[in-house]
Computed example of a mutant assay.
Amino acid sequence: MSTDELAETKALAYIEEPPITNDIETFFTNYASIPASALREHLITIRERVWQKCNYPCLGQWRFLHFSIKQNPIYAEILEKCKNEGATVIDFGCCLGQDVRQLVYDGVPIDQVRGYDLDPFFIEQGYELFRDGKIMKEKKVFGSGDIFDNQFLESIEPADYLYVDLFIHLFDAETQRDVCRRLARLAKRAIAGRQSGAKVAGERP
């Protein structure tokens, strides 16, 4: 990618300041023991590191601070089933793993959640972002692998709920069908999430 293309990408997909709300401050104070006075610098440091690795809009626009799983219509059901019936959750394409942390923060036992991403770099940066690498590694919550690797998929025990956030749109239309078939193998009860799309059908670069 040329310098001009990089500049254009940043102009469209990059927001300088982290959107620190009271909820975000409270989460990082309680979950990661990061005081409000240190939070801005901490978030910027991690975001710059992952942005240099990959210019995804979800990173440039701080979407990993949306904790989107809690906005899902069946989130209350997921929490209830996990807490009272031992249901399990997989976050596939978890990137920094923010939604796994939201589940744990909201009381889901850590042994009932797992996250998978193609690139272990993002999982490692998630440990840095949330300062929980020791317990997450001990519990083997996260793993890395390719959705097109059948051996990898077969090694994953299906969960009651599969959460897939801003992932399927990364593939062309034909490949998306294969991706969805593969994801369906990992869910016993329901698949939830959000994806990017357009009102006018078509593939975008």
Rank of each mutant, 00 (worst) to 15 (best):
L186G: 01
R185N: 00
L129R: 13
S68R: 05
T3C: 15
A32N: 10
E8N: 13
I24L: 15
I147A: 15
R204F: 15
I34P: 13
T9G: 00
L186D: 01
K81G: 00
K139A: 11
T21R: 00
E48K: 04
E80Y: 11
K137Q: 13
G193Y: 06
Y56E: 07
Q98S: 05
F152C: 04
V108H: 11
R114Y: 08
V104N: 11
I46Y: 03
I20M: 13
S144R: 07
A192H: 04
P109N: 12
S155H: 07
T9C: 01
I168K: 01
G126Y: 04
K137E: 11
A7T: 14
P18M: 14
V108W: 10
E16A: 02
E80K: 09
E203Y: 12
L170H: 06
K53Y: 01
Y116D: 06
V200D: 10
I20E: 02
Y56R: 02
E25K: 12
G97M: 05
K83S: 13
E77A: 14
I191E: 12
H42F: 10
F130C: 12
S155D: 04
Q71W: 08
R185D: 02
N150C: 02
S2C: 07
D106M: 08
F152V: 02
L79I: 14
N84R: 06
Y14L: 03
E48L: 06
F64R: 01
E80W: 07
A32Q: 08
Y56D: 08
F171R: 11
A192K: 09
D99F: 06
Y31Q: 00
